[in-house]
Design a protein around this nucleic acid. Structure first.
Length: 367
DNA sequence: GAATCGTGGCT
DNA sequence: TAGCCAAGATT
């Protein structure tokens, strides 16, 4: 007796794409940058500026973290021309805390390019979009599909996980990427490519989650090869990561007694926290050496150690010693005094904000 | 192709 | 807790 085809279906446009789009019609997440499937059926497409802004913010960043930044950017810069005309310091300041600051530099460069070279109109194809700063394989495809309904394969981390499970791909990432892309190409529909991409991402974010996927309510469960094989939860396979080294550095927070202003400077445009503000800081070395004391300060002063802050970066952990001094004299160095009421909007990355906060807390406690 | 580049939340 | 993870791009 032969097994009937219906009892052993395979992931395909008929068995995955259509059920998933039906599921999306009922369960799409309501997100500030999104047009609902109902409205899209009426011909409404989202503003490419909003799609682009959200996609760049969402690179390696959670929806929850992005929401307030998206609202703030949109309120302050309602169009790509407005963003293009903004000072760099304002853009970096508004991005502060969101991380991966090259994104903010590229975001601004991209806005300027669209305004100056494209008449303020985003290219309407993935190929055109990918030529712009900060827009790579994923983001170009996502904008083209979501904002223009171009039938291109969109592959992000969610979709890599969903497809790895659907097809029981045991080859670890990133080697499995070509095969995953092949499957996404075959599943992407010509009629609703934007909704399909968003549906796959919603599925990955809410049901086909990294741990403990809710297969019982998954619209693709009947055809999921990984589920059938009992290996879905441990897919996608990934290569082991290297251990994170520990580094150490020092930050020097000078405070002006008259008004409590803090002396800040701008980091070089390239590299770690590029273009962001900081109190003068040492380099971050692999081990603590003698250079971490007041001798490493950018200018002489009555430096007192007030403690340290710990911060985890992607590829190393940092312990930053924080030193504080009071000085009325403007230092003979590059930088500026930032008054207390300005500190909230200055482009301080989280690490440096921690350091400044610790120094000011110590100052308040010691007076 | 591998390394670089942040941060906050979750388990 | 310590590790893992999130709508990746760039060099």
């Amino acid at each position: 007796m032969q097994v009937k085809f219906e009892n052993d279906p395979t992931p395909s446009a008929a068995t995955v794409t259509r059920p998933l789009l039906d599921w999306y019609d009922r369960h799409a997440r309501d997100l500030p940058w999104r047009v609902s499937p109902a409205d899209r059926r009426r011909g409404v497409l989202p503003d490419p500026y909003r799609v682009w802004l959200s996609e760049v913010m969402l690179q390696q960043t959670t929806v929850a973290a992005v929401k307030s930044y998206f609202a703030a950017f949109l309120a302050r810069w309602p169009s790509v021309e407005a963003l293009a005309a903004a000072p760099s310091e304002a853009v970096m300041g508004a991005w502060a805390g969101l991380g991966y600051y090259a994104r903010a530099r590229n975001l601004h460069a991209c806005a300027k390019a669209v305004a100056a070279e494209h008449g303020g109109v985003f290219p309407n194809s993935a190929a055109g979009l990918k030529r712009l700063p900060g827009i790579g394989d994923y983001t170009s495809a996502a904008i083209a599909a979501i904002a223009f309904d171009e039938p291109v394969a969109v592959v992000d981390g969610n979709i890599e996980r969903v497809v790895s499970r659907l097809f029981a791909i045991e080859t670890p990432l990133p080697q499995s990427r070509p095969l995953i892309r092949h499957h996404v190409d075959a599943l992407t529909p010509a009629d609703r490519p934007g909704d399909f991409a968003q549906a796959m991402m919603d599925l990955g974010a809410t049901i086909c989650t990294p741990r403990r996927p809710a297969c019982i309510v998954c619209p693709a469960q009947p055809v999921c090869t990984g589920r059938r094989a009992g290996i879905a939860e441990r897919l996608p396979a990934k290569l082991p990561k290297r251990a994170k080294p520990q580094r150490r550095g020092a930050a020097f927070v000078a405070v002006r007694p008259a008004d409590g202003a803090v002396w800040l400077r701008r980091r070089p445009a390239a590299g770690m926290l590029g273009g962001m503000a900081e109190p003068p800081s040492s380099a971050w070395s692999a081990k603590a050496d003698g250079a971490l004391g007041p001798a490493a300060a950018p200018f002489p002063g009555d430096w007192r150690r007030v403690g340290s802050v710990a911060h985890g970066f992607t590829h190393f952990d940092l312990e930053l010693d924080v030193w504080r001094t009071e000085t009325a004299a403007t230092p003979a160095a590059e930088g500026w005094w930032s008054a207390p009421d300005q500190l909230g909007t200055v482009a301080l990355p989280t690490l440096m904000r921690k350091a400044v906060t610790l120094a000011l807390k110590d100052r308040k406690a010691s007076t």
